[in-house]
């Protein structure tokens, strides 16, 4: 097991979506301090892999599965309520994730520091501002594992660097990150592993009967 116990240890995983084999067999061990970049073209199942690692869906095949429950999963869909303002959305995100309760001033200070407008409904925010808001729980409530789907999407250079610095701090403190990104990662973030997704053979239909 090495020095630190693995947060995630899976062997012989295969992923499927809509009856189509996406990736596998796949072995993955995530230890504290790891930054793993899942790579592959659009549609190769990166998001499916991250959702499976989060425990939101079951792998199609698995020989061994140990997952970490102390995690933040931040996907493309950001779980924000369009009509509510940023502060209330952040409060709801933290509460629904059962994160320790923080004072209102702490939330407001964080959002102001991020440059997210406070009084406006989320639907009026730019894509980058929404992303900053969706990523805010990472800074406010520490968790062992971050599963991030395209976290740098829509962020400006400064915000990318800030996120990379936050991630480096998280990793140095014994956290781990599994992320996907089509952009090159900012310099502040050093990868421990690149993981290209592929199947053993060509993509094949798992079953002949597909439900429409």
């Amino acid at each position: 097991m090495g020095t630190a116990a693995a947060l995630i240890d899976v062997r012989g995983w295969a992923g499927e979506r809509g009856g189509l084999l996406l990736w596998g067999p796949l072995d993955l061990t995530v230890r504290p301090g790891d930054v793993i970049h899942v790579q592959g073209p659009n549609g190769c199942g990166k998001t499916t892999l991250l959702r499976t690692l989060a425990g939101l869906r079951a792998p199609a095949v698995a020989q061994h599965t140990t997952l970490c429950r102390d995690l933040w999963w931040i996907g493309h869909a950001s779980a924000l309520a369009e009509d509510l303002d940023a502060a209330l959305n952040l409060r709801l995100l933290l509460d629904v994730a059962a994160a320790p309760r923080l004072g209102e001033d702490r939330l407001l200070a964080h959002l102001a520091g991020q440059g997210v407008p406070l009084g406006r409904p989320v639907r009026l925010l730019s894509a980058g501002q929404r992303r900053k808001l969706a990523l805010s729980p990472l800074a406010l409530a520490p968790r062992a594992l971050w599963l991030l789907d395209e976290p740098f999407d829509a962020l400006d250079t400064g915000a990318c660097d800030a996120l990379a610095a936050l991630a480096a701090h998280h990793v140095a403190a014994g956290g781990a990150i599994v992320l996907t990104s089509h952009q090159p990662l900012p310099d502040g973030l050093s990868l421990s592993q690149k993981m290209p997704l592929r199947t053993s053979g060509k993509r094949e239909q798992l079953s002949n009967q597909e439900f429409s």
């Binding site: 959702r51 989060a54 425990g55 939101l56 429950r69 102390d70 995690l71 999963w73 996907g75 493309h76 869909a77 950001s78 779980a79 924000l80 309520a81 995100l93 629904v96 994730a97 059962a98």
Partner: peptide, 18 residues
Amino acid sequence: LRSGWVDQWVLTCAATGT
């Protein structure tokens, strides 16, 4: 479901046993 709000419910339930 579309916004991923329910995803957070499921994750919290898995983490806390609620």
